[in-house]
Design a protein around this nucleic acid. Structure first.
Lengths: 236, 236
DNA sequence: TGAGGCCTATTGTGATCACAAAATCTGCGG
DNA sequence: CCGCAGATTTTGTGATCACAATAGGCCTCA
């Protein structure tokens, strides 16, 4: 068995030496982004179990980067670890949904109002372009594209509020309802979706933070209320 | 050098075999709690660099649990990793302080109001006992004891609000101002500290959630305002 | 005396192995 | 046909090693 230990050590060294040159971003950050993408836009279903080795196989990386990325997502409550040490995508509950709605209303309208001071006409054009693509996704009934567009729209605004600590909190909140929303859209479709994005864009062009605040608040209330009524009762 | 590799492998195996039986809580969770304690109650100074091996030496555990605990704290923004991959305790800024104040006012008064429905007279007695010990710490000028007591007081209330998702967000916020507050108390002392805890306790006994909300909001505004004015300008 | 380039030590990252606990499968008896 | 105990597989955890990049000390040279 000494021979075995030796040979394995040599093989390890060999593998290690022709490792590709270090990339600018670490492996675990790359894994983190891919997992976050899946969680935000419906790559996972609520309650779905997640295993480290399974992800490692999917993403073709070693266990270590997976461990760090998953640990990070657990801390952000995007994943959940039960006391059996099993990791899974957290299921939604009525209480949790209510808390998410509260947190969104507490932060997002204010972030949008804050960002008004930093928006230029060009930036608003970009945001409007995002919203136009978004409308197309709704028409096509493409739930994943809709969710991506909706995320881009909101965070294109929030990230310019000059309040990255609050924006980070909001992102953590979005991570907690992504899988549920995907499932919800899968049930009720995207046909009846209406938003207050045009209203917000008009208010941004007019430079009226309070109207922007209002538009975003309505957008959240209506979008979440729509889903909450439709799906939440039947789930739990 | 083959011999060297062999012997180290054997030593490793030996160490592995007489590892103590697995504890109910994992090592990295134990590390996480200890680090969180330090961050919340002043064991670290803002801007202080943190190295994995340094902590491993302090806490007498291997590198792996440290890595997972630190990764978790970074995700909660209790620690910060610069792009040089150096980990440090995040320094405070005027902007960050303002955002923290906003987040606290958005969540904590509401959590306190929510908890009213679940409070029994015995629980309120316990909370009052915490507050009494707190007052002693203020008189003694013991900043760390004061911070521990203040944390216990607030979270004894929040954790009974039946809104653990919001409570987790609030804890993340506290982690972000712990080191700064410790430094601040070190400068201005605890002598002038006044709080609205008795007011909150009275409102809880009376069963008036709106008064509790008010008391907690005042407590936060006054406490943070006091520190903000005193220290923040001189820091940055 | 001070600024710039080498050199060493330190630090985070990732791979691999070993292990214990949980989960899953299996076969036996009711 | 079902339930349950034993065996097997899977899974998270932790240790250890190797490596690249950074930081910090040291020396040289202007």
């Amino acid at each position: 068995m000494k021979v075995l230990a030796e040979s394995s050590a040599l093989r390890a060294r060999k593998v290690r030496s022709d490792r590709k040159p270090v990339s600018p971003v670490t492996a675990h950050e790359s894994v983190y982004r891919q997992l976050k993408d899946r969680i935000l836009f419906g790559g996972f279903k609520p309650g779905e179990p997640v295993t480290l080795r399974g992800i490692a196989l999917d993403l073709q990386v070693g266990l270590m980067p997976i461990r760090e990325a998953v640990r990070r997502l657990i801390a952000e409550r995007a994943l959940e670890m039960r006391d059996n040490r099993r990791v899974l995508v957290p299921p939604m509950s009525k209480e949790k949904f209510e808390q998410i709605l509260y947190a969104r209303l507490a932060f997002e309208p204010d972030l949008a109002a804050r960002s008004c001071a930093h928006l230029t006409p060009e930036i608003i054009d970009d945001i409007e372009a995002i919203d136009n693509r978004l409308d197309l996704s709704v028409l096509n009934g493409d739930a994943e594209r809709y969710m991506r567009g909706n995320f881009q729209f909101h965070f294109a605004i929030y990230e310019r509020a000059g309040a990255d600590m609050l924006a980070a909190l909001v992102e953590s909140v979005w991570l907690q309802f992504g899988p549920f929303m995907r499932m919800a859209y899968g049930r009720v479709g995207t046909g009846d979706l209406t938003d207050h994005h045009e209203e917000a864009i008009a208010a941004m062009r007019a430079g009226k933070p309070e109207l922007v605040r209002c538009a975003i608040a309505n957008d959240i209330s209506q979008g979440m209320g729509f889903i909450g009524e439709s799906v939440l009762d039947s789930v739990q």
